[in-house]
Amino acid sequence: MDKLTKEQRRKNMQAVKATGSKIEIALAKALFASGYRYRKNDKTVFGKPDLTFKKLKIAIFVDSEFWHGKDWEIHKYDHKSNQDFWHQKIERNIQRDKDVNKALEESGWSVLRFWGKDIQKEINLCINKIEEIIKSRNNEFHKDTQRR
Rank of each mutant, 00 (worst) to 15 (best):
D50M: 05
K54V: 12
K17Y: 05
R9P: 00
R92H: 12
R137C: 02
M1W: 06
A15Q: 14
S64F: 02
S110L: 09
L56T: 04
T19N: 14
G35K: 10
V16Y: 05
A59K: 03
D99F: 02
I23C: 14
N82H: 08
W115E: 03
E132I: 10
E65L: 03
N128H: 14
E7K: 14
Q14F: 00
A103C: 06
K76R: 15
E73T: 01
R9A: 11
L104T: 05
R96A: 06
V100E: 01
T145H: 11
S107M: 11
G35E: 09
W86S: 07
G69A: 06
D118C: 03
S136L: 14
R96M: 03
R148V: 09
R10M: 10
W72L: 01
R148G: 14
D144F: 13
R37H: 12
Q88G: 13
H87G: 02
H87T: 10
G116N: 08
A15R: 13
R113M: 04
H68D: 02
I74C: 03
E122Q: 13
K121V: 09
G47E: 05
Q88V: 00
S107N: 14
K89E: 04
L51T: 00
F66T: 08
N128K: 15
F32C: 09
K40V: 09
R147V: 10
L27N: 04
K80C: 00
Q8I: 04
Q95D: 11
Q8P: 06
I90D: 04
I90M: 05
L125H: 12
Y77I: 02
Q8R: 11
N12H: 08
N124I: 10
K55H: 10
F32W: 15
R39Y: 06
K80L: 11
G47H: 08
K143T: 03
A18K: 15
I127F: 02
W72M: 02
L31D: 07
I130K: 07
N41E: 03
E73W: 01
K143V: 11
N101S: 15
Q88Y: 06
I90K: 02
D99H: 08
S110M: 10
I74V: 13
N93P: 01
W72R: 07
F46C: 07
W67K: 00
K76I: 03
A28Q: 12
T5W: 08
D50R: 04
E91Q: 08
E106G: 08
T44M: 04
K98S: 13
W86Q: 00
D42Y: 09
L27S: 00
K76H: 05
W72D: 00
Y77P: 03
E7F: 03
D99T: 08
